[in-house]
Design a protein around this nucleic acid. Structure first.
Lengths: 349, 349
DNA sequence: GAAAACAATGACAACGCTGTCATATTATCG
DNA sequence: CGATAATATGACAGCGTTGTCATTGTTTTC
């Protein structure tokens, strides 16, 4: 029922150490021997026991995902992406939702790393952008990859998968400008997210390029939630001179803005255009469907996981396939404009 | 840095076996000794190493969650609920998304159980309701708890957490009837889900009680997705004599129905009432907000996990706190009617 | 108060693998 | 062809726990 390395060794007529070499892709095994072992593995459906590997080896076979994100779609996409990368390499995923506002994160991280040996961690915003968290991780000497918003003053770029929020926000804003909008409201995300600033910056740059000054009244603080979108839009639309378009910093906020517009009997996109950011599934489930920027979270997560693993493996240079395993791992993503039905020509006054 | 059972033993002046006894709550340790050990554990921040426990012990310290559900909110809630239960008891969660339509599930399950020792599995629909999957699990002799839709002919009730879809659907339908609706369309979920039948049955019973015959034209096949909701609603609303209310089998379908109604310029709830099922976050993010039945997935998952763990522990009767650990674990849930804005009085003809 | 019963503790061998190091085999070279 | 250098393989000791079983206290019992 339960087949161990001994069974394989016996069947292949070699020592367990040789079997170990084969399954770990270590050098110094003659092709013929390797083949014998591989056949035995196949025949017996052998799968190395994870607990034993973790215990015995210096490497670990689990990667952890740290997140604090109320957006279920985001989280699921991250998980699936990582899982994809893990499965291909025989690793497992340990998920760890946490609260970025609580001070306990550091203790939790320490426990996680010490208690259940992890090969590495994937961090999502806002953890990935919190210095104290990164410091803790450095102190614990654990590998990690941060999924972060691209900014100029980023340290340790090699630990990061970057998302260029600024460029995407620029495109989105330009799209609105091209539709003839001159007054474009902007709903900011939470201040603990660097993406908030990146997206606003893209908005600013596009306006600047078009020679339109940023009106501070049109830029509202908020957070990445539906309710925040509702509140923000209400406020913008109650202005004496309301904007003809609203850039909501994510899809959830955009859905909220849509909701507020409906409340106020405003036609979308006839009287008001709304754009979101992320292209989460429900940007297709609103009425009308949202114009947004597609952020390939699944793919991003996959790359992050691949990067963590290549780092983790880097240490134990026992690999045969030497050097740069990192080749082919995309390190920067620019969300792409997706035009749907929530944006249209600016109304003629 | 990394503190092991040896460190604790040394500090407490006992053997490692005694420490093991204390941390596992085994009997036969004098209170004074127990206290000494506990103090040492505290002082050193000792946390037993999971890999070692898994390897050495007969029990496992990981619980697996098997799901195949496109609904991100559902999955996240399940995960969080299980994680809650796990954390309290020092277990870990291994998530395993799978494809219920593929034949590979059985092999995957086998690998999962054999490869990474699990204490037990939590199954969600449709796996929890698929006989062949259950058979495989029985054969593998692994503990599991199934989250299922309550039905009369359910075997092995003690393995289940039941959700009474019929009762909730009955309430929802009755709500519509009380608003004066006589022609109520029904959009079915996927046929692989038992809940689909339960919900339809509740709908039927309510109509029957009200003395209204079920019109087969008003009951449409579908699946638990937004698009299916759109299609179904379009069809119903194109009928010669369209219904005045639509019961969508879940919130996503209801959102789809809402979308279709908007497309056809139908006022909700003025001309048409729509109700959903589940009370997922986005039932609050549609316009108008959905009347639905609240299904406490987080709580359900928590109970499922608690049940798995109590089962797993049952085997190793080493526990001090004897017998029925299962006390206090809720085994049946009836989603509760939540009236919001998508349902209103039937239009006068 | 000695025998019997029981409770508390510890020594030591697993668990299934990887790491280290010694050994056996094969290739290389003068 | 013999010596030397690689290369391939295996023996064996951990990794940090738990499980088994033997040993040492501590009660109870008559």
């Amino acid at each position: 029922m339960k087949v161990t390395i001994n069974d394989v060794a016996a069947r292949a007529g070699v020592s367990i150490k040789t079997v170990s070499r084969v399954i770990n892709n270590e050098p110094s095994v003659r092709p013929a021997t390797r083949k014998k072992v591989q056949e035995a593995v196949e025949a017996l459906h052998y799968q190395p026991n994870l607990a034993a590997r973790n215990l015995a080896g210096s490497r670990a076979y689990t990667i952890g995902l740290i997140y604090d994100n109320p957006n279920a779609y985001y989280v699921i996409n991250m998980q699936n992406g990582i899982l994809d990368a893990c499965k291909a390499r025989g690793y497992e995923l340990l998920i760890h939702p946490s609260n970025s506002k609580s001070e306990s994160v550091h203790q939790e991280l320490e426990d996680l790393v010490l208690h259940s040996k992890v090969a590495g961690l994937v961090l999502t915003p806002p953890f990935s952008e919190t210095k104290s968290v990164i410091d803790t991780l450095k102190r614990l000497n654990v590998d990690y990859v941060r999924i972060v918003s691209k900014t100029a003053d980023l340290e340790d770029v090699e630990d990061c998968i970057q998302v260029d929020d600024t460029a995407a926000a620029f495109d989105l804003t330009q799209h609105l400008l091209q539709l003839g909008h001159k007054r474009i409201g902007f709903l900011c995300g939470g201040e603990e997210h660097v993406s908030t600033y990146g997206r606003r910056e893209g908005y600013r740059q596009a306006l600047e390029q078009a020679g339109i000054p940023v009106e501070e009244d049109l830029v509202l603080k908020g957070e990445y939630s539906f309710d925040s979108g509702v509140q923000g839009a209400k406020k913008l639309l109650s202005l004496d001179k309301p904007p003809t378009a609203i850039f909501a910093s994510n899809d959830e906020m955009a859905a909220g803005a849509l909701f507020a517009a409906r409340l106020m009997n405003i036609d979308i996109p006839g009287q008001l255009s709304i754009v979101g950011f992320e292209d989460s599934p429900f940007s297709r489930q609103t009425w009308p469907k949202l114009t947004t920027a597609h952020q390939p979270n699944n793919e991003i997560a996959k790359c992050a996981a691949a990067l963590v693993l290549s780092k983790a493996r880097g240490h134990t240079a026992t690999e045969s396939g030497s050097a740069s395993k990192e080749a082919g791992i995309k390190r920067e993503f620019i969300p792409e404009l997706v035009v749907r039905d929530s944006s249209g020509p600016a109304p003629t006054e």
